[in-house]
Design a protein around this nucleic acid. Sequence first.
DNA 1: GTTAGATGCATCGGTTTCTTAGGTATATAT
DNA 2: ATATATACCTAAGAAACCGATGCATCTAAC
Lengths: 113, 113
Amino acid sequence: MKPNAQLFKGSLTTIILKLLQEEGRMYGYEITRKVKEASSGTLQLTEGALYPALHKLEAEGLLTVTVEASGNRPRKYYSLTPSGKKEVANKVAELQAFIGQMQSLLNLKPGIG
Amino acid sequence: MKPNAQLFKGSLTTIILKLLQEEGRMYGYEITRKVKEASSGTLQLTEGALYPALHKLEAEGLLTVTVEASGNRPRKYYSLTPSGKKEVANKVAELQAFIGQMQSLLNLKPGIG
DNA sequence: GTTAGATGCATCGGTTTCTTAGGTATATAT
DNA sequence: ATATATACCTAAGAAACCGATGCATCTAAC
């Protein structure tokens, strides 16, 4: 039983955009580490979920990529495009509103109805 | 753009269990109304998502059904089984912990990195 | 020297979950 | 007659995610 290990449906892209807004630019592997670290290991963002999401965001024009050979192996740094920067605020606001609604459903006291 | 209309992946069953814990017993159509009402119309729980979820929870032994002809048309009232009552606390706690992690990711300030 | 583990990219198959659309049936309102 | 509300349900398809796997490089262990 590990349903808590998976991200909210449709929220992964929002998380990615938010992290890029925060950090400026990141590469894929770094994002997986960041999510794991920021959630104390609770949220495990698998690469099988991340990379398709990154490619999709890039195809939608929200992200750009710059490849850099960082001493060792090449890294693909992702950063927000102008339209990506606009989208962040919207998506984050949507997700937060949504979380608020979820909490109002979860915070009802049992046996009162 | 209506990603905010959908429930978190895997959270629908938790919401159902929570509502039944709160209300004692409910029928399907009533649950859809309740979610819509409690979220001011933000969350729309479609029947195509609800009924399969209810049947699955019943098959897992977390819910029981009693059919009642309530004046007009027959209703299927769902309520928690003993094991369902145990599961509610766990699932709600999991989801709340998860929401907390999501918020900590979303509440980071932009441009600081 | 070769095995293991970390970094760093990526795809593929399968499963679950949700959406969209439709179906059945009764009652009420227009 | 037609639309809306109640009340149940399924089925097809899309979407998202998980787990496994693959390639390649570098470092550390033994």
